[in-house]
Design a protein around this nucleic acid. Structure first.
Ligand SMILES: [Mn+2]
Ligand SMILES: [Mn+2]
Ligand SMILES: [Zn+2]
Ligand SMILES: [Zn+2]
Lengths: 146, 146
DNA sequence: ACCTATAATGAGAATGATTTTCATTATGGA
DNA sequence: TCCATAATGAAAATCATTCTCATTATAGGT
């Protein structure tokens, strides 16, 4: 819910590259930390009640992506959503509602995650390819649409 | 390579809904059948050597999606790529190059696919959610970028 | 083969998300 | 405090995609 911890870590990360952690940028990070899934610039703009102009949100997301603080997520036509990088959020997967399109984070129990990782390794070795990361996205119906 | 009878199946599918399978539409399906991964309207336009105007390709993809012949795939910023639906292509997963962004189909051995499906079921039950489909996308380096 | 109603096409205008520009403001260090 | 530089905000520009509308192609029915 709160983002105290993230704030400190992001602050440290940005200071490394001489990027200022301004109030507008803090607000964007805060909104992402409070979210239960990736958010688009427009969604953030609404959530922040226009305290940060849309063009600044776009620029902030670009800056944060360069600093490896956020990563883009593509699951809908025409919009890019962003979420905090794994070193902040922890590794997880997504539930994508086939009805309303919402994307929700799904924590995965350690043993299952290990299985997924093994599967990915096996699959990778079969096509002579070294997996760096993976994303398991489950499509179905979300709570509100059920 | 060549479209192994996809043409016939698509033809049948479209005739069910009184949608004409014109030469332009055939060319788009042919290009998708020949591809080893999802393709964007622009990529198809280039592959087809401008024999089909870009606006027609977009419209064709929309028509084919409505007819469940193609499905959209989102893995890059700002562009939607399309591939033949699973009932034509068979279920598979994707390898996404973190270097050049190319998306390649990866066939998955039956036993591994079964494991993935089970994992998805278990995960779904843990969050009170009925999985309808899943996508396992592996990020790494493609052959040309290796 | 000839009509006709309807579907499809193509070129360009319109749209919507995102990026860029540029003038102004805020910030950290000397 | 002053300055050099980074950040900001509003608006214009871009790029992928969709829409419009005049024209063309097609499937039936004759
Ligand atoms: Mn997430
Ligand atoms: Mn595919
Ligand atoms: Zn939903
Ligand atoms: Zn590559």
């Amino acid at each position: 819910m709160t983002n105290r911890g993230f704030d400190r870590e992001v602050e440290a990360r940005l200071s490394e590259t001489a990027v200022r952690y301004t109030s507008g940028r803090r607000r964007v990070v805060g909104a992402l930390a409070a979210a239960d899934g990736p958010r688009s610039a427009d969604e953030l703009h609404r959530e922040l009640g226009s305290t940060v102009p849309l063009s600044s949100i776009y620029r902030t997301l670009a800056v944060l992506q360069t600093a490896n603080v956020v990563v883009p997520h593509f699951s809908a036509k025409g919009v890019t959503r962003y979420e905090l990088a794994e070193w902040l959020m922890g590794h997880h997967h997504h539930l994508i509602c086939i009805d309303c399109g919402v994307v929700e984070d799904i924590p995965i129990p350690q043993p299952l995650e290990r299985q997924v990782r093994e599967l990915v390794e096996v699959i990778g070795s079969r096509v002579a390819f070294k997996p760096v990361n993976h994303a398991l996205e489950i499509e179905g119906t979300c709570g509100r649409c059920a």
